[in-house]
Computed example of a mutant assay.
Amino acid sequence: MIELKGLTKVYGSKKKVTTALSGLSLTVDKGEIFGVIGHSGAGKSTLIRCINLLERPTEGEVWVGGVELTKLGKRELQQKRSKIGMIFQHFNLLSSATVYNNIAFPLTLNGTPKAVIKERVNELLALVGLEEHSDKFPAQLSGGQKQRVGIARALASDPDVLLCDEATSALDPQTTDSILNLLLDINKKFKLTILLITHEMHVIQSICDRVAVIHEGGIVEEGPVSEVFLKPKHFVTKEFINRDSVGDDGVKLAASVPRPEWAKLVKITFLGAKTYESVLSQVVRETGVNFAILQGTISTIKDVPYGKLTVSFEGEDSAVDKTLKLLQERDLDVEVIG
């Protein structure tokens, strides 16, 4: 649905040049929720604005729905943009217009008949749960309600793609979760392709199918969220995960707990149904090894549960080795770290 080929964006003149994107390539499949995560200044906002050509790339190609946007004329590009919805961090609502008129705005610009506009806006008000707020103005709404208006407006033209530019970073955690659930419902109901950029690992973990990590204008790691999240390779990815992987519902114990010199320190990762099975206790009963859990968390990646444990094993070397082998045979990821 979205394909970026060798995307480069350079700002400034010869004396002072800033390269925001450098030869970046990326593919987003139809119907998936794809996340791009990176620190401030990594190139996230430039990337998403290049997709609908609000920023025209210096080099490279932008394909959406099989059409290369960089080759289109002004009128053709406007028509194609109508099928690319966008929601923003700070909502970008018309302060002097009601909720109804904000949602209707793109349809009004396209010359859509009033009867059609009314039917479509009412559908969208119901979709985002704002039927009772139709006649209110943005100043009368909460942050979450404003973002729901922004989502409804982005969907007004029945887009094929929805771009989300840090759509939850101005919201509190509870409101963030409600907006993420709404985006997930929209994706499932309409098979809408969603590309979102964020600096919050929680957002990626909650709703995305795949993720790309952007750093200094390039993609440094990419793949299914479960793979990238549980087996990060690049130091930037590890920074995000170490900072955000343990949430309020997780358990985190000090990793520096003193342990005997003869103990072996191991990281064990559970994914899916294995998370809730007593695999560890079954194995140690079989091998006779003693263990202590030094650090642990249980959470979900989208709808898939996972668990991560740091465990200290004590016993004969052969028994500990057998324990690790049996854990691996039960499809757990096992890493000796000390």
Rank of each mutant, 00 (worst) to 15 (best):
I207L: 13
I207G: 10
I207S: 14
I207E: 15
I207T: 11
C208G: 00
C208A: 14
D209W: 01
D209P: 06
R210A: 05
R210N: 03
R210Q: 09
R210M: 03
V211Q: 00
V211D: 00
V211H: 00
V211L: 00
A212R: 01
V213E: 04
V213T: 03
V213L: 05
V213R: 05
I214D: 01
I214Y: 00
I214H: 02
I214W: 00
I214F: 00
I214Q: 00
H215I: 07
H215P: 05
H215L: 04
H215D: 11
H215R: 08
H215K: 13
E216D: 14
E216K: 13
E216R: 09
E216F: 09
G217R: 11
G217W: 10
G217I: 13
G217F: 15
G217K: 09
G218I: 12
G218M: 11
G218E: 07
G218K: 06
I219F: 02
V220Y: 03
V220M: 04
V220L: 05
E221K: 04
E221L: 10
E221I: 10
E221D: 13
E222V: 15
E222I: 14
E222M: 14
E222Y: 07
E222S: 14
E222D: 11
G223N: 13
G223R: 08
G223D: 11
G223T: 03
G223K: 05
P224I: 09
P224D: 14
P224N: 02
V225G: 07
V225E: 10
V225N: 09
V225T: 08
S226F: 06
S226P: 08
E227L: 05
E227G: 02
E227S: 10
E227Q: 13
E227T: 07
V228C: 04
V228Q: 14
V228M: 07
V228Y: 10
F229E: 05
F229I: 05
F229L: 12
L230C: 10
K231I: 06
K231W: 01
K231Q: 06
P232F: 08
P232M: 02
K233A: 04
K233M: 10
K233V: 14
K233L: 10
H234C: 07
H234A: 09
H234E: 12
F235C: 12
F235M: 09
F235Q: 08
V236Y: 06
V236H: 09
V236K: 14
T237Y: 01
T237D: 00
T237A: 03
K238H: 06
E239K: 11
E239C: 02
E239L: 15
F240V: 15
F240N: 06
F240R: 10
F240I: 13
F240K: 08
I241L: 05
I241P: 05
I241D: 04
I241G: 03
N242Y: 12
N242S: 15
N242F: 11
R243K: 12
R243P: 00
R243G: 12
R243M: 15
